[in-house]
Design a protein around this nucleic acid. Structure first.
Lengths: 238, 238
DNA sequence: ACTGCGGCGATCCTATAGGAAAGTGGATCG
DNA sequence: CGATCCACTTTCCTATAGGATCGCCGCAGT
């Protein structure tokens, strides 16, 4: 039953840092929402599916364990993390409020680069939002468009974080970003606050340009609070 | 040269969750400062030293990689993370200021439990500080006392974080804690601000009790700013 | 009929072996 | 004498095999 004949010509992945590649694949699998929370993540199974040995899979899972996307029970294996409860949701928004306002405050005053990048990110977010609304008016919920919209939103906030010049805050933001993405999976049936979100992003961008009466921190605070309010309201209706 | 006769009676560790045990051992090794930054962390060398196979060592290193305590270069191996530069130091204090003030704000108003725990933590910190000063006056720098003092300080802040009721902020604090510990290793030659730190902790505790004119957030802000100022001044003198 | 228990399958966990890439030293040629 | 090339060593990286553990199903006993 030993078949050592195969020299394993690496057909699944092309010989470029296996562990990181496996990590990205599993991460993509998790973020795509194709696996339900609580589902088992068998090491050997994944290894066979990706045509690699269990070792890099194991390392990738260890990596993912620290992100909170998967949970590990000793001698029982890995599982997809359970969905966020109401308490975790509230804490997530609270933490995000702290980080985002701090990043906006530290990125003030904005230089020309930040203004430019913010404008581009805002425009992409607005256009993606228009396409989502357009599809929504046509009666269909396009998953690809929704994903693109969320990505544009994430990019907008990432611009602010990069501009704040603090690598630790950036890291924390990315750490929360995974949880945020997980939350969005739960309420992916449709985006209902495109108009408000786009308007609030515009307010943030304007504040960074020196327009309006609000500081960037205040504008960002209103945005995050608005997102929280609308999300909780939608969750309550669901 | 192969000695497979031994059934490997697990002499180094006693058969209880190898990977986590290895992780704690390496973490302790790193935090103890016995290894210099930039030093190589050879996988099989560590495996032989701990009398385990390379696999759990590898997993522990992956775990540590996400904490920022070790760095990995593809196909080159792991190394102890280089010491924090001045920019990283400034960003670390900035991030800590954000987190600590937010935690203090969220923990306000304080319940009886928080007041009690804070009082105990403050007392331990003060006593540890007194012992450090006492030893310092005697002309010796006791490493154990200094470590205990730092641990008491960390505990004091951990009380506030646990009381803020936000698991994500707690996680971020712990993440920064590793970097903070690393920074303290660099300036471990002596603690010079015991008096100020104890006084500021007392001010924070008093603010949580409703005494004084400052809010807990303001008191915590003054404390962190004070720590930053004194640390940078000491680094400048060094 | 219900509960305790022992075998069985699946999976995780650890160990060992072999192939590949990077660093190092010496030898050779200009 | 210096630079370059080559071979060697070390180490990482991946693959495979074996031991240990957990959950489950059937069975006996009360």
């Amino acid at each position: 039953m030993t078949m050592p004949s195969h020299p394993a010509p690496r057909r699944g992945v092309e010989r470029r840092g296996l562990r990181d590649h496996v990590y990205e694949l599993i991460l993509e699998l998790l973020l795509s929402g194709e696996v339900e929370p609580g589902a088992r993540l068998a090491i050997d199974t994944i290894a066979r599916q990706l045509d690699v040995s269990p070792t890099p899979v194991r390392e990738a899972l260890v990596h993912l364990e620290r992100t909170g996307l998967v949970t590990r029970e000793a001698l029982k294996g890995y599982r997809v993390a359970p969905p966020l409860g109401s308490e975790e949701l509230a804490e997530l928004f609270e933490a995000r409020l702290v980080l985002e306002t701090a990043a906006a405050r530290l990125a003030t005053p904005a230089g020309p680069d930040l203004v430019a990048q913010l404008g581009e990110a805002q425009q992409r977010h607005r256009e993606a939002g228009e396409r989502v609304v357009e599809a929504l008016d046509a009666g269909r919920v396009d998953l690809a468009l929704t994903t693109e919209y969320f990505a544009a939103d994430t990019d907008f906030h990432a611009v602010v974080f990069r501009a704040c010049g603090n690598r630790y805050l950036v890291g924390m933001s990315e750490s929360l970003g995974a949880q945020l993405h997980r939350m969005r999976q739960s309420a992916l049936r449709g985006v209902t606050d495109v108009h408000e979100a786009v308007a609030e992003h515009a307010a943030v961008a304007d504040a960074f340009r020196g327009l309006g009466e609000l500081t960037p921190e205040q504008a960002m605070e209103r945005h995050i609070v608005g997102v929280r309010t609308r999300s909780l309201a939608q969750a309550g209706r669901g």
